[in-house]
Write a protein that binds this DNA or RNA. Structure first.
Length: 215
DNA sequence: AATCCCCCCAACCGCGTTCTC
DNA sequence: TGAGAACGCGGTTGGGGGGAT
């Protein structure tokens, strides 16, 4: 049997929360706690899904949350922990009082990944790009190495062009190499195997064969 | 001044895990 | 012990805001 939806979608409001909704949720939870998320919207007089209420509470309304900029120390903690546990955002967030997994994930995706790349460090493996290239080269036969080096140079060229002109590689005429992907790929949700069949998302299990998308 | 483009982040989706009966 | 419900997590999306043109 298929999984039942968490709520009746027809009668449920979606999108941005209004201050009135925030207030209702906050008032209710302050008084009664967070025991049953399915009942909370009903009892609080909200036309929201319980899941949406839980997310709003955990990511925004909780009184112990920090809302400001991430400090250098927090960033260092995220980078260190990510190098150990990978994309286990809840694990990382647990070490940062007042930060949520969503916060950490967003900050990683928007800031830290670029910061590391800019420092010549692969944000997936946390190794320097030159170290990775040397590592890969030792495992390949000479013709493959030559091919890889050529591909890497292509990636580097694309990245530089993008940085210098703020244009995507696909914006440039490229008769030899077809553009591998659209500028913002929309991968199908279930391209990967089910979670229990996937390897843990540790940095060492991932590789960086593909060109990183120009940021 | 208007339009375009990109970045950021709040919110959503779907799946795995845990809980309850 | 198994089924269904509830919860939690990570990936993804989309809209608003602001800078660039």
């Amino acid at each position: 049997m298929g999984r039942v939806p968490c709520c009746e979608k027809d009668n449920v409001k979606r999108g941005q929360w209004t201050p009135e909704e925030d207030n209702k949720l906050l008032t209710y939870i302050t008084q009664y706690g967070t025991r049953n998320w399915r009942l909370i919207p009903k009892n609080a007089g909200l036309q929201r899904c319980g899941k949406s209420c839980r997310l709003r509470w955990t990511n925004y309304l909780r009184p112990d949350l920090k809302h400001g900029e991430f400090t250098d120390a927090e960033e260092q903690t995220i980078i260190k922990l990510h190098s150990v546990v990978g994309n286990r955002w809840s694990v990382i967030a647990a070490q940062l009082p007042g930060r949520t997994d969503n916060d950490v994930k967003n900050h990683w995706n928007t800031k830290l990944k670029k910061k590391l790349s800019g420092m010549g460090i692969d944000p997936v493996t946390h190794k320097s790009f030159s170290h990775l290239m040397a590592e890969i080269a030792t495992t390949l036969a000479p013709p493959q190495v030559a091919h890889l080096a050529e591909a890497a140079l292509g990636c580097f060229k694309d990245e530089m062009l993008h940085l210098l002109t703020k244009k995507r590689p696909s914006d440039f005429p490229s008769p030899a190499v077809p553009d591998p992907a659209p500028a913002r790929p929309r991968s199908p949700r279930h391209a990967s195997p089910p979670r229990h069949l996937r390897p843990p998302t540790t940095p060492s299990s991932a590789s960086s064969w593909a060109c990183p998308a120009p940021s």
